[in-house]
């Protein structure tokens, strides 16, 4: 049960916050003029608020940015490298020009996609969701992946996500001739982590994912996969599925209904 004393303090707290009506304020102002106890309570409340809002001098010397950088910059395994400087430059070029790179991109045709066998993926989803893959060599302009790449080539992706029910999440990964799964999106470079799908833009076509990514693929056949979903999926969940079933076919069921798995086959030259 709330005491009258507490009720008064509560009213004064509202008064302090400016959450009283004009007439209530007039009444409270009158009480503050008459009651030393009310004035004391208000002072106590104000002191609490002032203390909470006051700067914390002891914390001003903390270099939080340096601490965050140090925590983020953990050593990475030499599993793959991303061409970051080039990727930022390319993202800028793609955004500004929308030309040399994006002119290569075209909306995916229906026969580029093979959805899952359960047949629950909608036809528009099959037709209007997909990725475009570009090969980036050391010195040449990126070009659409034609089926062959060398182990030194980087890959660059864009995606299209149209249709009556666009997707929300995307994963892009590859399975090489050794059966090893390599991740493009999301990045998966730290052991012990289990990142989930990246969020994608709905109702957009040819959206560039602005990084050139180089992977250490084994020579031989390589399958690139794009998994479009409405719910995020976890990397380890997909890797477990691949481990169990081998290289997934585009008409295989990895996750659930109403999702699209696109497969693009290529070959890695030694």
């Amino acid at each position: 049960m709330r005491s009258r004393h507490d009720t008064n303090a509560r009213v004064l707290a509202a008064y302090l916050e400016g959450e009283v009506t004009t007439s209530e304020r007039a009444v409270i102002d009158g009480e503050l003029g008459d009651s030393a106890q009310a004035r004391k309570t208000l002072r106590q409340l104000q002191k609490i608020v002032d203390h909470l809002a006051a700067p914390a001098p002891d914390l001003e010397t903390i270099d939080l940015e340096a601490r965050v950088r140090a925590a983020v910059n953990q050593p990475l395994p030499a599993r793959r490298t991303r061409a970051r400087m080039l990727s930022v430059w390319l993202a800028g070029v793609a955004a500004c020009l929308g030309g040399s790179l994006l002119l290569l991109v075209h909306p995916p045709a229906a026969d580029e996609f093979r959805s899952k066998s359960n047949g629950t993926a909608s036809a528009p989803a099959k037709r209007w969701a997909g990725i475009q893959v570009y090969k980036a060599t050391e010195h040449a302009t990126p070009e659409q992946l034609g089926g062959e790449l060398s182990s030194n080539d980087g890959l660059l992706f864009s995606y299209t996500n149209l249709g009556s029910r666009p997707f929300d999440y995307l994963m892009i990964f590859a399975v090489d001739s050794r059966g090893e799964v390599s991740w493009f999106y999301p990045a998966h470079e730290q052991l012990g982590e289990n990142p989930d799908s990246i969020s994608i833009r709905r109702e957009h076509a040819n959206v560039p994912l602005g990084e050139i990514i180089r992977q250490d693929f084994a020579a031989g056949p390589l399958s690139l996969y794009a998994l479009f979903t409405h719910e995020p999926r976890r990397v380890l969940e997909v890797e477990a599925w691949v481990k169990e079933h081998g290289r997934p076919l585009a008409d295989s069921t990895i996750t659930g209904p109403d999702e699209v798995l696109e497969r693009i086959d290529a070959r890695v030259e030694p």
Binding site: P55, A56, D58, L59, I62, L64, R67, V68, A71, V72
Partner: peptide, 27 residues
């Protein structure tokens, strides 16, 4: 930075804990 550190300090009552929590938050 200032607001996150201040909130963490008031919550936890200790500067070092506040700094750790704020750092982990931004990470």
């Amino acid at each position: 930075q200032a607001r996150t550190l201040r909130l963490a300090l008031r919550y936890l009552g200790r500067e070092s804990l506040a700094a750790d929590v704020a750092q982990d938050t931004f990470v």
